[in-house]
Design a protein around this nucleic acid. Structure first.
Length: 516
RNA sequence: GGGGCUAUCGUCUAGGGGUCAGGACACCGCCCUUUCACGGCGGUAACACGGGUUCAAAUCCCGUUAGCCCUACCA
C-alpha cells in the first residue's frame, strides 16, 4: 500500500517568478495530478530582506496565471492564512519546528555546537590549502581542530553542525539522472543553524536543513526540483536518516538555458512569468512549451511525431507525463516553438475561451461590445501568433485611422475605384454575425452554423460587393484594398467582409466620406 | 583545486550494436489567395573529439574537450 503522492514547489520570493521555476513547478504539478496526489506550494522565505508579502503575492499570481493550482500552501491574496494540514507554508513561520528538530539532533548527538569563528576557519583553510589539499571542516588535515567532540564552553553563542558520515558512498537514486554516487569524504560537517543570539540559543536554520524538515513534515513523497540541487542531495540524505523517516524519491530536472546556451537571465529577454503573460501568450501554450523542454511525451511507447500530436491538452499531458521520459541534459529555451504553440492553441480555441485572455489587451470599449461582435472579431483574427497580435489587428475596429499609409493611398485610391467606394458607403444592414453563427469553432468547421439568417447577411454583403465590382469592372483586390486603406489606414486587415461587418455600415460610410 | 551532471540537424528531440540517423519548430522554395496571414506540398541541415571492444559503434568502455552545478553561518 503506497502512500498518496505528494510533490511540492518551494520557491523563494525574489520579486519575480522565474520561468525555470515555473517549469519545475509544472513537472511537480503534472506528476501529482497524474498520480492523483497533492501538490504543495511552500515559500522559502528565510532570506528576510526579500520576503515581503508583495513578493510572495507575485509567486502566487504567477502560479495561478499558469494554472498551476496548489492543494496546500498559502491562500492566494491572504498573506496570513494557508490551506492544508501541515502549515504554515512559509518557512519563517516554522521556526519553532526547526528549533525542535535541531534540539532533537543535538540531544541524539547527531549534531553539535560549533563556535569556530569565521576568522579561525579561514585561517585553517589557508593552512590546508597551502598544503595543496581541499579544506573540509573536521576532515582530513582539519580533523580534531574544530568543535566536533570538544566539550566546549556553552556560554558562547554557537552555530550548529550536522555530523556527516565519513566513509562509503552516498547514492542518490535519481528518477531522471539515474543512480549518482558521491564519496562521503567529499562532504563535511555542514552548518544546519547559524550562530545564535546568545548562549544556548539556536540561530536561524539553513536552507538545506529546512528543506529536509519541511519535506519530512509535509510528507513529500517525490522531490522534483532543479538539477542545481543534485549536489545538495547527498547532504540531505543523512539528515532524513537522522530523523528516522524514509527517503522521498528524487527527480532532478535539467535547467533551462538561454538561446545562447548560457544560464537564462534577463539579458536573454523574458525570464519572469509576468513577461510571458504580457507578451500575449496563453497560459496553456506556456505550459506546453515548458513541458516539452526536457520531456518527450510517449504515446504507446512512441515519441510524438507530428505537429498534431505536439499539441497536447492538459489532460493528455497529465496522462502521458513520466519522469522516465525526461531528458538529463539542459535545454535551451525556444521562443519560436512557444510562439508556434501559442498560435496553434489560439487557432483551435473557441472564442468564448479566448475572450477572457484577450480582454486585458483590448481597449476599454471592448467590454461593451455585444458577444456577436466579439465573436466575429476574435474569429477574424485567430490566425495571429499572440493575443497582442490579435489586439493590434483589431485596432481599426475601435478607432479611426490616425494616419494613412501613403504608398497604399497612392496605389489603391485610384479614380476608378471611387464610384465603387461610394456604393459601398451606401450599403446598409450588414452588421456583425450573431453569437449563434459565431459558435462555430473554426473556418468551415462542421457543427451548427448558426441561424440561416445570419449566414444570409454575410452572403448578402458578399453578393452586394460582387455586384459593385461587376458594375465598375473592378477586381476584388482593387476594391478590398481601397477599402482597407480608407477604413484602417493601411492595406492590411482581416478579410474584407469581416472588416466591413466589424466596423459596421454607419461607421464605414463615415470613414469613406473623405475619399469620395 | 575537489566532487557531481551533461554532450544527435540552428533549436527541442527519436533512436541504446547493423536505420538512406526519424519527427517537430525555425529557415528556404513552390502552391493557394481580396491584403497580412493561415493552410498544403517539398527542401537544406546533426551523432563534440580521440582511443578502444566488435565482423559491425550515434549506440558499449576509457580518455579528452566544452558547458553547467555544488564546494557559504546564500537559497
Amino acid at each position: 500500500m503506497s502512500r498518496q503522492v505528494v510533490t511540492r514547489f518551494a520557491p523563494s520570493p525574489t520579486g519575480m517568478l522565474h520561468i525555470g521555476g515555473v517549469r519545475t513547478a509544472l513537472f511537480s504539478w503534472l506528476f501529482a495530478r497524474k498520480h492523483g496526489g497533492r501538490f504543495i506550494l511552500r515559500i522559502e522565505d528565510t532570506d528576510l530582506s526579500r520576503s515581503t508579502d508583495d513578493n510572495i503575492r507575485i509567486i502566487e499570481d504567477g502560479m495561478a496565471w499558469c494554472g498551476l493550482t496548489w492543494d496546500e500552501g498559502p491562500v492566494l491574496g491572504d498573506p496570513g492564512s494557508w490551506k492544508g494540514p501541515n502549515g504554515p507554508y512559509r518557512q519563517m513561520q516554522r521556526m519553532e519546528l526547526y528549533r525542535a528538530k535541531i534540539q532533537e539532533l543535538l540531544d541524539k548527538g547527531l549534531a553539535y555546537r560549533c563556535r569556530c569563528s569565521r576568522a579561525a576557519i579561514e585561517e585553517r583553510r589557508k593552512t590546508v590549502e597551502a598544503a595543496g589539499k581541499v579544506f573540509q571542516y573536521n576532515r582530513g588535515m582539519d580533523r580534531g581542530k574544530g568543535c566536533a567532540d570538544a566539550g566546549h564552553d556553552a556560554s558562547e553563542p554557537a552555530a550548529i553542525r550536522f555530523r556527516m558520515p565519513e566513509d562509503g558512498d552516498i547514492v542518490v537514486a535519481d528518477l531522471i539522472k539515474g543512480d549518482t554516487r558521491f564519496p562521503a569524504d567529499s562532504l563535511d560537517d555542514w552548518i544546519i543553524a547559524r550562530t545564535g543570539e546568545g548562549p544556548g540559543d539556536i540561530g536561524v536554520p539553513t536552507y538545506n536543513f529546512c528543506v529536509v524538515v519541511d519535506d519530512t513534515d509535509m510528507e513529500v513523497t517525490h522531490v522534483i526540483r532543479g538539477d542545481d540541487h543534485l549536489n545538495n542531495t547527498p547532504k540531505q540524505i543523512p539528515l532524513f536518516a537522522a530523523f528516522g523517516t524514509g527517503l522521498p524519491a528524487f527527480a532532478h530536472v535539467p535547467m533551462i538555458l538561454g538561446a545562447d546556451g548560457a544560464k537564462l537571465s534577463k539579458r536573454h529577454g523574458a525570464t519572469s512569468i509576468t513577461e510571458y503573460q504580457a507578451m500575449g501568450l496563453l497560459p496553456s501554450a506556456v505550459r506546453l512549451a515548458l513541458a516539452r523542454l526536457s520531456w518527450t511525451p510517449k504515446i504507446d511507447g512512441r515519441a510524438v511525431e507530428s505537429a498534431e500530436e505536439e499539441l497536447l491538452t492538459d489532460e493528455q499531458m497529465i496522462q502521458l507525463f513520466d519522469l522516465a521520459d525526461c531528458q538529463k541534459s539542459a535545454a535551451r529555451f525556444d521562443m519560436d516553438k512557444l510562439q508556434w504553440l501559442n498560435q496553434k492553441l489560439i487557432q483551435r480555441s473557441p472564442w468564448q475561451e479566448l475572450e477572457p485572455h484577450l480582454r486585458p489587451f483590448m481597449p476599454e470599449s471592448w467590454t461593451s461590445k455585444p458577444d456577436a461582435w466579439k465573436a466575429q472579431a476574435i474569429q477574424a483574427t485567430q490566425k495571429g501568433k499572440s493575443l497582442t497580435d490579435m489586439a493590434e489587428a483589431l485596432r481599426f475596429a475601435f478607432e479611426r485611422p490616425a494616419a494613412f499609409d501613403e504608398k497604399a493611398v497612392e496605389k489603391f485610391m485610384t479614380p476608378a475605384v471611387k464610384p465603387a467606394l461610394r456604393e459601398v458607403a451606401a450599403l446598409t444592414g450588414y452588421g456583425h454575425y450573431s453569437p449563434g453563427l459565431a459558435n462555430r469553432t473554426g473556418r468551415e468547421a462542421d457543427g451548427p452554423k448558426g441561424g440561416a439568417q445570419e449566414e444570409h447577411r454575410h452572403e448578402a454583403l458578399e453578393a452586394a460587393f460582387t455586384a459593385i465590382l461587376e458594375r465598375h469592372g473592378l477586381k476584388t483586390k482593387d476594391l478590398a484594398q481601397a477599402l482597407r486603406v480608407a477604413l484602417c489606414g493601411s492595406p492590411v486587415s482581416p478579410g474584407i467582409y469581416d472588416t466591413l461587418m466589424l466596423v459596421g455600415p454607419d461607421e464605414v460610410a463615415a470613414r469613406l466620406q473623405r475619399w469620395l
